[in-house]
Design a protein around this nucleic acid. Sequence first.
DNA 1: CGCTATTTTGAGATGGCTCAAGCTATGTGG
DNA 2: CCACATAGCTTGAGCCATCTCAAAATAGCG
Lengths: 231, 231
Amino acid sequence: MPSDLELIGTCALFRGLPPAAIAELGAAAAVERFEKKVLLFHEGEPARALWMLRAGRLKLTKLGGNGQEIVVRFLIPGDPFGAIAILAGARYPVSAEAVEACEAFSWTPADVAALVERYPAIGMNSARVMSERMQELQERYRELATERVAQRVARAILRLARQTGRRVEGGVLLDLPLSRQDLAELTGTTLFTISRTLSEWEQQGLVELGRERVLIKSPHGLVTIAEDLPS
Amino acid sequence: MPSDLELIGTCALFRGLPPAAIAELGAAAAVERFEKKVLLFHEGEPARALWMLRAGRLKLTKLGGNGQEIVVRFLIPGDPFGAIAILAGARYPVSAEAVEACEAFSWTPADVAALVERYPAIGMNSARVMSERMQELQERYRELATERVAQRVARAILRLARQTGRRVEGGVLLDLPLSRQDLAELTGTTLFTISRTLSEWEQQGLVELGRERVLIKSPHGLVTIAEDLPS
DNA sequence: CGCTATTTTGAGATGGCTCAAGCTATGTGG
DNA sequence: CCACATAGCTTGAGCCATCTCAAAATAGCG
């Protein structure tokens, strides 16, 4: 369990800053706690803070005109969020929802501005973080445009495994409460199709399912599906 | 027709920098010319430069395993590209192809690093540019996941109109060679469906079509479709 | 003027969606 | 501790938006 300053100092946004900067960040940060299903902020709201997840899991979502929701991504401790609103717009382009009890640091736009002024390396760090996320989203965009559902679902699960996977006996457990609906909104399909797809994989022994729970028994099998290789 | 230094000084990446910085950028830039259909670089290639379009139009594309291509976005003069590779990866995550004769500035990674060192504001500028593109891609991702083809195509055309639209008699012309195939790869559908959709709109007097050419006669009509409003 | 790239149109197939119904954990209040 | 309520999940049946493939029309270009 890293200390707060360690977490702040090693996250992608603030890596490489002098200890004085990290100390300032720690001093300026507010810490808040959010229960499961609580919205930290919602899409369209004026940005009142730059955030960083301290503990727990949350998801960034986006609404469609017809009421449909999509999941932009899940976050783990150390991940910054709300940065786009601070950098580019005055408003959050996504909503942030706790998928389990969470704690998050937040900094006011004024504090962020002052710190960026003092430690300009934050600028390049932000650009790097944005670039990495952009790369992932471009990739997912391509998948959504060109691949079948099963392929996309397999990829999504493998990504989640890399991000939050925990080795347990029998395989790798996705270490967050992940409903079929969540997976559907992450991959651009419906909860029905997700249910059918996962059930089939369970038949084949690739995964083991539970309520809001996915255990990967054969990562290799999922890779075969994700890459559309002959089994 | 702005001078090179004006173009460099007013683009999103270098806005607000002191004249000395702009002069340096101008001095360090190489200018190259590319004919229609030429690839400036391709996906996966090690990044050898940060680019900025000087004249013409180009598109960023990405390949799928099955040979299918998608269009990530079209660029107009002043747009930077290849930035993600310089910032986050060592390799270009997309290909860049001239859709008409183009000219582009390029800077070596070493020159970029030196300039960023000297003028740290470039860091925040990069972050802002990335954030804006991220916001757009998140939006398009949502559309691809939740909306029908017609809706997405209408949105894509309206975006292109905002970006490269030119007022002409009779409406707004998309000022770039844009094939049905390009539109399909931009919106995640097939050229056949694009052809049918556009033909229908032409019947209704919303657009006027030509080979690699779209003239918008009724922007409002397209908005109605894009927003899925009752006509 | 003929070649080639682009576009249109048709006909048929299908992957995934929609809607309805029932099932099953999980947690909760009596 | 049990019975019930509820959120999450599964399964089935039918449908339809969109894709696929084939063929022909059209428009530039050399």
